[in-house]
Amino acid sequence: MRLVTFAGPPAGGKTTVLCKIIKCFKNEGIPVGAVKFDCLQTEDDRIFGAMGIPSKKGLSAELCPDHYFITNIPDVYNWGQKNDLEYLFTESAGLCNRCSPYIRNILSICIIDQLSGINSPQKIGPLLKLADMVLITKGDIVSQAEREVFYRRVQMANPHGEIYFVNGLTGQGIYEICERIKELSSECVLEEQTLRFPMPMALCSYCLGETKIGEEYQIGNVKKIG
């Protein structure tokens, strides 16, 4: 089984694009499954389930979703193997700009949308920088110039990755993405891999759910404005 991780800022088109990719694999008779990682609530697993594939969700609640991801991915991986999947896709909302769920040797795809603003390529950090493939959505509603500027910025944030425009609504570009996924992904023993980017330890007490304000509640890796 090959694991492929999808990540990106909320509402960037991850679920929409992933559904199109799943459809493309299903049409070829390849058994795929999908797992959605989110913070508090998600219906995405049902959307995947409605496509007639094994699906699952994991809610991180008060934990950083990426920390939660990495501690649960072995179980999810086993679940995928039990379901005889050939490809297991995971979707995580990039809610933490410090972290990324990318694992070495596991194909990592970042989905980012044109409407997220011209500075988003430099704002989302390792999520974009360390991806093997970057898919840019919503190019269908902006000008050619904006697409070119955005593309350039994505290139400069991640000059190593392959960058594609896709249209989540019409599916334009998806076929090629599926071909690239097949070529770039590989089977490997999950337990032998490491994270591409160390996740900062729960940065501070607030990462762990603290709500009170004041010096005495600030525990851990705290940085002062100066």
Binding site: Q114, L115, I118, D140, I141, V142, S143, Q144, E146
Partner: peptide, 12 residues
């Protein structure tokens, strides 16, 4: 390839 269509607008 550059594309120009009715749906494309400036958003920035």
């Amino acid at each position: 390839i550059a594309q120009l269509s009715q749906n494309m607008n400036f958003v920035l």
